[in-house]
Design a protein around this nucleic acid. Structure first.
Length: 877
RNA sequence: GCCCGCGUGGUGGAAGUGGUAGACACAGGGGACUUAAAAUCCCUAGGCAUCGCGCCGUGCCGGUUCGAGUCCGGCCGCGGGCACCA
């Protein structure tokens, strides 16, 4: 027998054992409760990173734990395989996105398997498999028939040199990333999912998601952005033809008497009409349109406006005229694309008013004068919470003193009664544009026919497969733009309706579509239809979903929409409209950054394995140059602060990587990868192995017969045995609680502590053997290979993976005595140990005998004596 | 800019609902074993102090409470998202 912990030897062996036993195949078993654990599936970039290791280890802990608790567990894995990087790689290095992707998948699968995850690999698929995206196309057609999809115009980033549509991340400081040309906004007809029809429903249903983080629900609520406001019109004076009114939506109708200008989006129909005979105005609009399409960019840009020269009448006073500005910060997509500006109560409007010399008029003021400067006199905009009462100095409805909320409602009522607009509820949530002018995505299965218009492809013709080559020639990805667009033999087809020559839709789907239903597909990955309802009925919902907080809004909201759309079209049972029962968002893996400077003082980054630590600080291993150490940040290839899990597994084994990922940092927070931490994890696992090995040696030396004769907790080891068993059962309780509440780091800490207890214990061999075996079970979700090895060494039957989770004995958890800290005026000064159930009066009496208390009272009596049973005593003097 | 988080020793962090701040671990210091080293094992450890019973301490300022890391208000710093990155 080898006398040391040898992960390189034991890990592959146990992985083979699990495979042989089919330990992780998900089986639909009507007699058992099911549990579906899902981690967000990875993009096949080519290498797994520590973030993956952390994510999948957490899911694996849950999966293995639930399996031990008797659940029928589904724990699948797949690949979010469509997307830009594959196409970018093809453009930059040649090759084909498909080959690049599948080769990456093979590499990553090979890197993941050594982690020993309890995944049912038989269910694996990639979203770029025609089997998968063909079913997605079938659902798209069903959605189309159900009225859940439509076409409309939308703005995209257009690179005028490369003649291609750019993603937001490809627009760098307003320029195309490859061409460097200033980006333009361009309108295209695009496909949309009607997610906005579900805004109210998606908002209300958040209340039922009890096991989602509050912050995620809050972010989604804000994103959906339900608002109550007034829709009204300002009448234009001397307006161009057909523009006698401008519709405005406002959430603050109570500030109507503080209006000082009207602002319209550069894309507003009125702005477009005015462009025709005002070149200066047209130039301004053109410049606005040169900005990117992202909300972030619009909001960060300097607020600018252009005076159209037009005026509108205030609805309450026809003699009061307001100027009309085109403003670069007004989005055509939200509300009506026009606002009235009230500078006194909106900082952005105030900045705008000051810039263009527009009046600033307060409509309300603080209920109590706090001495702050009014916006009229150069102060900031006064924007109190809507729930706070204020004094309306220019109110027109309701009380003089009222809250903003009340004033908004009375203003809406007043306006409705006087024929100035009506109250409406609006949502910020926009429909989901799914068209992408790219090759490497799921083709949108429709055909454009001159006679029939837009016709869905026949389902029997699905999948509409991406062409691999072009008439025997490899597709040329070095040319910018969408290869499908210039692929005649693929593009040209027959109309599914009339048979006349027609053209395929050359846009593909947003990759968010692929990830919006993969969780449902995992329940029946080889079904001939998108889902199999019997399977979905059994396995759905996902009981525990685990992934990054960066997906808090889009991916999760889109998936919630998709589950509803799939239910309407008969692809999911009603119970699955909220597909994720519980959500956990884990933190990132970070690492220090090592940098030196080149001759032009530009940063040069270095991999952690190239840095050595000396007494004078960090230095490059190769040449000894000093290295600047930048505090930890998310691991990224560009900063080279990455650690390759493959190297870690080779040096220490998967169990060490898993153990370290779970220890120290709470799962929802970032974890910093340190070489020292990994080393410590490895040492600890070695120690556990040695303790088990020591017990085995004792058993062998004494002979099995002697061991058996010793009995359980007999003789003078009785007290030691009891102490060890108490500690063990406390540990079972604490570790279980940690796993149940996603406190893996605390479970790990309790296991460290118990290892110390076991190592020092003078208990009988039998008691120590039992303790070591239970400890192996408790560690099994985290370090499955080591646990199997220890379990086997100590003579356990079967696999730990198949053993029932240990249950704590309640009798061993109860303490007889408690130690109560004694505070005097809230500061801890002393403590007393009392029997657990000592009556309050008795506790009080004993506290009054305490030296520290007697000293503090100096003969007097306490003002107050607070006894929190089992917790604390506070004496107020 | 807007929305959402987070901030505790030299370091990562612990502290179910307000109740002994610093569990557990890393790095550090001391010791044992060894010819020596590695490995292993044991002990120690928030800061200050007139180191003998005291004071200060959970980013900063203020508040609520017998009692605040935890609750409230205001700042500062860092991170995530912002609809075509996934």
């Amino acid at each position: 027998m080898t006398a040391r912990y040898a992960p390189a030897e034991i890990e592959p062996r146990w992985q083979a054992e699990w495979d042989k036993a089919g330990a992780f195949a998900a089986r639909r078993d009507p007699d058992r409760a099911k549990y579906y654990v899902l981690e967000m599936f990875p993009y096949p970039s080519g290498r797994i990173h520590m973030g993956h290791v952390r994510n999948y280890t957490m899911g694996d802990v849950i999966a293995r734990y639930k399996m031990s608790c008797g659940f029928s567990v589904l724990h699948p894995m797949g690949w979010d395989a469509f997307g830009m990087p594959a196409e970018n790689a093809a453009m930059e290095r040649g090759g084909h996105p498909k080959d690049w992707t599948y080769s990456n998948i093979a590499d990553m699968r090979g890197q993941m398997k050594p982690l020993g995850l309890s995944i049912d690999w038989s269910r694996e698929f990639a979203t770029c498999d025609p089997d998968y995206y063909g079913q997605q196309q079938a659902m798209f057609i069903d959605f189309l028939h159900a009225g859940l999809v439509y076409r409309k115009n939308a703005t995209v980033n257009w690179d005028p040199v490369d003649m291609t549509v750019l993603a937001n991340e490809q627009v760098i400081e307003g320029k195309g990333w490859r061409s460097g040309a200033p980006v333009e906004r361009r309108e295209l007809t695009q496909w949309f999912f009607k997610i906005s029809d579900f805004a109210e429903e998606l908002l209300d249903a958040l209340d039922g998601l009890d096991n989602w983080p509050e912050k995620v629900k809050l972010m989604q609520r804000n994103w959906i952005g339900k608002s109550r406001g007034l829709q009204m019109a300002f009448s234009l004076i001397d307006a161009p033809h057909e523009f006698d009114r401008v519709e405005v939506y406002t959430t603050r109708p109570d500030t109507l008497l503080g209006a000082s200008f009207l602002g319209i989006s550069p894309d507003h129909p009125l702005a477009r009409a005015l462009e025709a005979d005002n070149p200066e105005l047209a130039a301004f609009c053109a410049e606005c349109r040169r900005m990117g399409t992202s909300e972030e960019e619009l909001e960060k840009a300097e607020k600018r406006g252009f005076d159209t020269g037009l005026k509108v009448r205030h609805p309450f006073d026809t003699a009061w005229e307001l100027p009309v500005y085109i403003a670069n910060f007004i989005l055509m997509d939200y509300g009506t694309g026009a606002i009235f500006g009230c500078p006194a109560h909106d900082q952005r409007d105030l900045d705008f008013a000051r810039k263009y010399g527009l009046p600033v008029v307060s409509t309300y003021a603080p209920a109590e004068d706090d001495g702050s400067t009014m916006p009229e006199d150069g102060g900031p905009a006064y924007v109190p919470p809507k729930s706070e009462p204020v004094i309306y100095v220019r109110g027109f409805a309701g009380e003089t003193e009222q809250t903003g909320e009340a004033a908004i409602e009375s203003a809406i009522r007043f306006c409705e009664e006087n024929g100035v607009g009506h109250g409406v509820t609006k949502f910020r949530l926009r429909d989901w544009g799914l068209s992408r002018q790219r090759y490497w995505g799921c083709p949108i299965p429709v055909v454009h026919c001159d006679a029939c218009g837009v016709v869905p492809e026949k389902k029997e013709n699905l999948p509409v497969e991406l062409p691999y080559d072009e008439d025997g020639q490899p597709i040329d990805f070095s040319v910018p733009g969408n290869p499908l667009d210039r692929h005649p033999s693929w593009r040209d087809c027959a109309c599914p309706s009339c048979g006349a020559p027609a053209r395929r839709e050359t846009d593909t789907m947003d990759t968010f579509v692929d990830s919006s239903w993969y969780f449902a597909r995992f329940t029946a990955p080889r079904a001939e239809t998108p889902t199999d309802l019997a399977e979905a009925e059994y396995w759905m919902n996902v009981d525990q979903y685990i992934g990054g907080i960066e997906h808090a809004i889009l991916h999760l909201l889109y998936s919630r929409f998709f589950a509803r759309a799939m239910q309407i079209t008969g692809h999911l049972p009603a119970k699955a409209v909220e597909p994720f029962d519980a959500l956990f968002t884990q933190g990132m893996v970070t690492h220090e950054i090592y940098v030196t400077r080149d001759e032009k003082d530009r940063p040069v980054y270095h991999l952690p394995e190239h840095v050595e630590w000396t007494e004078s600080g960090a230095r490059l291993g190769a040449c000894g140059s000093p290295v600047e150490v930048i505090p930890s940040a998310k691991m990224s290839k560009s900063k080279k602060n990455v650690v390759d899990p493959v190297n870690i597994i080779e040096s220490y084994g998967a169990d060490t990587a898993r153990w370290f990922m779970l220890s120290d940092s709470p799962p929802e927070r970032d974890v910093e990868w340190t070489a020292a931490g990994a080393e410590a994890a490895y040492k600890h696992l070695g120690r556990v192995w040695r303790i088990a090995n020591g017990i085995v040696e004792e058993m062998e030396q004494g002979g099995i017969a002697a061991y058996e004769a010793e009995g359980q907790g007999a003789g003078d080891t009785g007290a030691e045995d009891l102490a060890l068993r108490r500690a063990l059962h406390k540990t079972i309780h604490d570790v279980t609680m940690g796993i149940d509440s996603f406190g893996f780091n605390t479970s790990v800490a309790k296991l460290y502590a118990f290892t110390n207890t076991l190592a020092k214990s003078k208990a009988s061999l039998a008691a120590r053997r039992e303790a070591a075996m239970v400890m192996a079970q408790l560690m099994a979700p985290m370090t499955p290979h080591l646990s199997e090895e220890v379990w086997e060494m100590l003579g356990g039957t079967g696999l730990v993976a198949g053993a029932a989770w240990p249950q704590p004995d309640p009798a061993l958890l109860v303490e007889d005595e408690v130690t109560l800290p004694i505070q005097i005026n809230g500061k801890r000064k002393s403590e007393i140990t009392v029997p657990k159930d000592l009556p309050r009066e008795e506790v009080e009496a004993r506290v009054m005998q305490d030296d520290a208390v007697l000293k503090a009272l100096a003969g007097g009596s306490p003002k107050k004596l607070i006894v929190v049973p089992g917790r604390i005593v506070n004496v107020v003097v």
